[in-house]
């Protein structure tokens, strides 16, 4: 039987752009170019490798996000995923991680799955908790923050490099994994891949398709509230010296002045 893999990918504002908040204190997605979160490219890559090692597999990439988020799906399709699902609804604006996980969970169940693959964190929110929440909601084993992953005989195994130890993990499918940026460089889409992606199916769903009420998501439905966002004042310009042979000593004097030595 075919191995059904769903990869969750997020469309995010470019981190090298000038990211801001909108007036309602949500992330401003209009003024900065968006792209497929670089950390989710690793998720797509690992899904592709798992699929290549399986007899028969199908990869669906899934995103919850605005119209432009289709770009992220196209990129993942051009890397080699088979089909895409886009959950898009005006009522989603301002949804927090609890709401996003609700929507992703319903969409994943709608698609059908044996394995869900996530990135380690999104590059805008950087919470890194969605995969754990999604596993909780789906009621499947959480095998997260893996730097190595493989699927064999209905089991997923992987290596998790934690703060104090490295762990070897194992769980039965269906399961949810998240992979880190140590899991291996993501491939670039080939010209053939880019052309093929144009013909791959992208299914669009809205909240009613998933049986979700509008008050469960969005800014109003969020379980957290941002009251204030202030731009960090630029650091006051420091002293910069050119090393003319005494740079190390000058630096030591600075450190002594600041009582570090």
């Amino acid at each position: 039987m075919s191995l059904r893999i769903v990869v969750c990918v997020k469309y995010v504002p470019d981190a090298t752009g000038d990211r801001h908040f909108a007036d309602d204190l949500t992330v401003d997605r209009d003024d900065v170019d968006g792209l497929l979160s670089e950390l989710d490219e690793y998720a797509v890559e690992q899904a592709l490798q798992i699929a290549e090692d399986a007899d028969d597999a199908e990869i669906t990439v899934l995103t919850v996000g605005p119209e432009d988020a289709k770009d992220a799906l196209r990129k993942a399709l051009s890397m080699g995923a088979d089909k895409a699902v886009h959950v898009e609804d005006d009522d989603l604006h301002g949804t927090d991680v609890i709401g996003t996980s609700l929507v992703l969970g319903k969409a994943i169940e709608h698609v059908g799955y044996d394995l869900v693959v996530c990135g380690m964190a999104s590059t805008d929110g950087t919470m890194g908790v969605l995969p754990a929440i999604l596993a909780e909601r789906l009621g499947v084993p959480q095998v997260t923050l893996l730097s190595e992953v493989s699927v064999e005989d209905g089991k997923v195994t992987g290596r998790r490099d934690g703060d104090t130890a490295t762990e070897q993990l194992e769980a039965a499918l269906p399961a949810l994994v998240s992979v880190t940026d140590q899991s291996g460089e993501a491939r670039y889409p080939s010209f053939k891949g880019i052309m093929a992606a144009k013909k791959k199916p992208v299914e669009s769903l809205d909240l009613s398709d998933l049986g979700i009420e509008e008050d469960e998501v969005g800014l109003e439905g969020a379980w957290t509230k941002v009251d204030e966002a202030t731009e960090r004042p630029p650091r006051t310009a420091g002293t910069i010296v050119k090393d003319e042979g005494e740079g190390g000593k000058q630096l030591a004097a600075f450190l002594a002045e600041r009582k570090f030595v």
Binding site: R235, G238, T239, I240, V241, K242, D243, G245, E246, G247, G248, K249, Q250, L251, A252, F254, R258
Partner: peptide, 15 residues
């Protein structure tokens, strides 16, 4: 707060 424009192989050992 403090920066040294220079070769770290010179500056770091001296520091």
């Amino acid at each position: 707060d403090y920066g040294v424009v220079g070769d770290l192989f010179e500056v770091v050992p001296q520091l």
